[in-house]
Design a protein around this nucleic acid. Structure first.
Lengths: 231, 231
DNA sequence: GACATGGATGGAACGCTGTTCCAATACCGC
DNA sequence: GCGGTATTGGAACAGCGTTCCATCCATGTC
């Protein structure tokens, strides 16, 4: 319940192995990355940090905050690396790809992006994309809708990736997984699911990353049509 | 572990109050709608059905399947109501709005849409949108990407709505919630989050449903640019 | 009409979780 | 040194999904 009270900045380090929110989040990210979302328990975390579960609560309010902080961390790493001088269109693609790759590397973060819309992770993505839309010359009235469309698309793909990662057994690779999904789709009733069946044949050889980028370009093309008829 | 073995179709009903997957899913939906996602426990479900938690497992494999089945149910209700003869563009808007409204009414389903991509809920949405894209004359090579973009956008908004519903305290209305988010956004550092701050002022009076539709139109406009340069 | 069979039921029990609580410890200003 | 506060570690608690199993009862057979 009681959270860190931050009295005075201690001039000397407490201990070499002192707990801190940073160290806890770092350990959590490692557990999440290596053993998956379900492996992150306060007991496992306490064991890795060689402490008791109660001690963690001095630095972190609850598990929800821990997951949110871990997500903020991996997203922030990506957003700081985005080039700032680039052409707006390219910058948006770079931001989107950065988030995509971050979720690809840390699938557990995908589901967490949906959390509170005032968390740094979400804010940085929205600001990064929205700022570039402004630079692109999108009419001010349309900027909010356009940014919302891009962000929601990115979130959708992120959530999808997170879900897929949860589905793929740790050993198998993604080609096998896609093959399994394609096989299921191919078995559907042709009269009811003709489009899904058609797409199933393309599913095996498609590249997630390229398709994601194609979606971004599609939305950017749609945004491009706004410039002329400034309605 | 053992699931229903479906020996012979019983010619007479077992009992008036016999358990069945349909009745269980129906009860689960009611609990989810009235008391939220966290209120759905096997104990609460058993109490509502006047049985024991063990009996439910005869009809439903586990909680994950129960949630998926409940989601399939609410999505199916929406998809069957979509007009079939309409102009493709309008049909896509109708499907998207149907899903949006369904998630608005049953926010818990939003997060569930990300589950296995071979569940009826996802398949029906993909087929409904993809089929209309074909009718729209989108080049076959681009149909998969275009459908993926639209579906992922819908999923993103759905997930966002689900998250927001989890955040809003049961009593308050959405205007109050939006106001609270806007207030937080307005307090951000202007040099770092100028776009988010600008958008915060529009957040209060914006309409989620309209903005969602604007996003759909944006993507459709982008898809429209594909027709000419059939590359 | 009695009987055996097996699908269906309900509730106790298990292992695990997030979280709380609290005695014990480590540290710092004096 | 000492006293008090910040921090720690682990036991305890309530609640969860799930499993297990003794019991029930509708049905087909004789």
């Amino acid at each position: 319940m009681a959270t860190k009270t931050q009295t005075k900045t201690p001039r000397t380090e407490r201990r070499m192995d002192a707990l801190s929110k940073e160290r806890i989040v770092e350990a959590a990210i490692k557990i999440l990355d290596t053993d998956g979302e379900s492996a992150l328990t306060f007991r496992a975390l306490a064991a890795r940090l060689a402490t008791g579960s109660g001690a963690i609560y001095w630095h972190v309010a609850d598990k929800s905050e821990l997951l949110a902080a871990a997500t903020d961390e991996v997203v922030a790493r990506v957003m700081t690396g985005v080039v700032s001088g680039a052409e707006p269109r390219e910058a948006i693609r770079a931001i989107a790809l950065g988030v995509f790759d971050a979720i690809d590397a840390h699938p557990w973060a995908g589901a967490q992006l949906f959390r509170e819309p005032w968390r740094p992770a979400m804010l940085q993505i929205l600001e990064g994309i929205g700022g570039r839309l402004r630079a692109l010359g999108v009419p001010e009235r349309a900027q909010f809708d356009a940014a919302s469309a891009l962000v929601n698309y990115v979130l959708g793909v992120a959530g999808q990736n997170a879900a897929n990662a949860r589905l793929v057994p740790p050993g198998t690779d993604r080609a096998t997984f896609l093959g399994a999904v394609a096989a299921r789709w191919a078995q559907l009733d042709p009269s009811e699911y003709s489009f899904v069946r058609q797409v199933a044949t393309q599913l095996r050889e498609h590249d997630d990353r390229e398709q994601f980028l194609a979606g971004i370009d599609l939305i950017l093309a749609g945004i491009g049509t706004l410039r002329e008829d400034a309605r």
